[in-house]
Computed example of a mutant assay.
Amino acid sequence: MKVYPSSTSWIVKIHLRWTCTNFRKDTCSSNAPSIQTTSARNLRTSSSSVSRMNENSSQLTVFVYSKLVAREQEEREYSEHQSALVNKAYRTLLKPLSRGLYMLELKGMRFDEGTESGVDAEFLMELMEINEALEQAQTPEEADKISQDTKGKLKGLTEKIDGALRAGELQAAKALLAQMKYFSNIEEKVKEKLSGFM
């Protein structure tokens, strides 16, 4: 009986080595299809041996493919999860308000609704005047002026908040963030007003 060349055994060994290297140990466990009959020592020209070789090769191919698909799915889900976290972090740190609130949260200070300590009667009066001027704006130029004024106030607040956080003055940063929150709402209202003129 003629034996297949030793190169066949080398190919099988390489295939096994790749399989066990690229998958977890369970790939090479007792659950994996046996390929002992495909070693060079057992490969004969008889039809029964070739049949067994083909059968075991097919089983191994299906097994490896299923492991590969499962691994790709797992890695894809992990990548999507990590990408979502990166995007969320980027959006949080991009805007001064959400960034400041996050920094306070890292220090253990919560910013609950209705507990804004940086809002006094004078500040509320200023907000009322700005909102009234925005409602009465009849042209894009009038609305744009309010927009520019609001952006200027937000820029100034951003600098003050960053300074307070660097100095560890958390209560001051919290009060300034409360003011920023109101001006951010006005900024959104201005955008809606300007879009109405288009």
Rank of each mutant, 00 (worst) to 15 (best):
L157I: 03
D162E: 13
S29P: 10
K153S: 11
N42W: 07
R52H: 08
S147T: 04
E113L: 03
E116F: 03
H81F: 14
T37M: 12
N54K: 14
R52K: 13
M128L: 10
K95Y: 15
S46Q: 09
E135N: 10
F63K: 01
F183K: 05
K193I: 02
L68A: 07
L165C: 04
D26W: 07
F111R: 03
A167L: 08
G152Y: 08
L104W: 01
Q179F: 02
G168H: 05
K2Y: 14
F183D: 04
D26R: 13
I35D: 03
E72R: 14
A175C: 08
K181V: 06
S39P: 06
Q171S: 12
E187V: 06
N22H: 11
S29F: 04
A133S: 12
S6L: 09
K25H: 08
Y65Q: 13
N22Y: 15
T21K: 12
Q179M: 10
T38A: 15
A32H: 04
M128K: 13
L177D: 00
L43Q: 06
T21H: 13
D112T: 07
F197E: 01
G118A: 02
Q148E: 12
L60D: 00
K13H: 12
Y90M: 11
G163P: 12
E142F: 05
E188S: 11
A175Y: 01
F63Q: 04
E74K: 10
G114S: 00
V50L: 14
Y78L: 15
Q36G: 15
E135I: 09
L177A: 02
A143M: 00
A173F: 04
R41T: 15
I14C: 03
R71W: 08
N87R: 15
E113P: 09
S47M: 08
T115W: 00
R52I: 06
